[in-house]
Amino acid sequence: MEHAEVLGTLTEFVQEKVLDSAGVEIRPDTPLLEWGILNSLSTTSLVVFIAERFGVDVPAERMVGRNFRDLDSITRLVLELENDVRKV
């Protein structure tokens, strides 16, 4: 899957399900953790969404700030995980 496609899907989820508002603009580099848009607990709902939509589990060791800093990092994480699945 392409970067842009994953990014779009994640952006939509965060806007609609986390912020409850499709009208807010979130950019790929909006600092989600720093601004408290994602907190440690609501990140779990995002992880569940990623599993359902992209078919990849985010293992506990990757639930770190570096990977959830912004939508761009989360997109990279999803693509990496998809890659791992394909290799297996």
Binding site: K17, V18, D20, W35, G36, I37, L41, S42, T44, S45
Partner: peptide
């Protein structure tokens, strides 16, 4: 009692995992 609306930018988060 975890506050899930700790946003500094006026975003309202859904009830999340409270």
């Amino acid at each position: 009692a975890t506050r899930s609306d700790i946003s500094t930018m006026g975003f309202q988060l859904s009830h999340g995992f409270k």
